[in-house]
Nucleic acid binder design. Sequence first.
DNA 1: CTATATTGGTCAACATGGCTGACGTAAAAC
DNA 2: GTTTTACGTCAGCCATGTTGACCAATATAG
Lengths: 166, 166
Amino acid sequence: MADVKPIGKALFLREEELRRGIELMFFAYRDFTGEADSILAEQNMGRAHHRAIYFIGRNPGITVSDLLAILCITKQSLSRVLSGLMEDSYVVQKPGASDRRQRLLYLTATGTALESRLTSLQGRRFAAAYREAGVDAVDGFQRVLRGLLDSDTIEQIAQQDQTSDI
Amino acid sequence: MADVKPIGKALFLREEELRRGIELMFFAYRDFTGEADSILAEQNMGRAHHRAIYFIGRNPGITVSDLLAILCITKQSLSRVLSGLMEDSYVVQKPGASDRRQRLLYLTATGTALESRLTSLQGRRFAAAYREAGVDAVDGFQRVLRGLLDSDTIEQIAQQDQTSDI
DNA sequence: CTATATTGGTCAACATGGCTGACGTAAAAC
DNA sequence: GTTTTACGTCAGCCATGTTGACCAATATAG
């Protein structure tokens, strides 16, 4: 097998490298979400609830349509989740001050508690990975992940960063 | 706001950094799988079919239990998916030579065609991201992703690499 | 050779979380 | 005053995960 053409060898290595990325992405995402999933299961919630709680916590007072734009799901799907979260008092809604059709979403104390529990769990996993890998690796990690995004998503994230009340 | 304590500022930045990672992971995974999902939807398949096809293509002749170990789902869930794939002639099974209880899984020509279509789609996305980000970034990316894995997953991947017939 | 363990499949029932389509209501905007 | 927008809701469908029970073929250990 030593007589493989260099070009073939290069292509093979390239495909291996790409497959490694694909697989790593699959396993990492699964393990990354796994821990939070078990906590959520205890409260009879799923990943969809987590996402809603996370982004409401991150953007207090967000409107339903803005949340829809972030999550990219149908309003029926989100509505089902939000109804559950409000019934169990993780989330409350207030009418918008300027536009009273809007229902601005906020976490309750319970909601905030759950959100920070979940986020600190996932954050610890990231912190450990970052620590092991080193600062330069973190930069590369984020650059590659950004490169995987759709262009719409990139714009969306950029806008969010602008309007966020940091 | 210039009188924030340095320690508070550092913690804030740290949390921001961790949240950035969490969010990037969510968006990147969604966009990364999105394209393949649409192709799969055309063939009335979902992500579960994709995973099965991918790992059978990657490990021709894999047993059902080994595939189960990779996917970490119940055999009932996998069985449903495999039945569909065999009915539509994407996958065939042959009895194992040494252990005839085993059913070794292989892709058909149709299956291989679909697998490579999907993989090259996702591969192109990775290739573009890798190209933009640069070689060093790729290394960092993979190091951080590996750091996010559960220890069981790490062992599993290591074993796979050993036994793979490269 | 027999007992047990392993590999794999199957049926039934259920939950979650996507989706579509249709319809309603309140408020803003023109 | 009409139209558009923001949001909700009802009904139903599909994919994919779950548990539990049960069965068949075969390998393996005693």
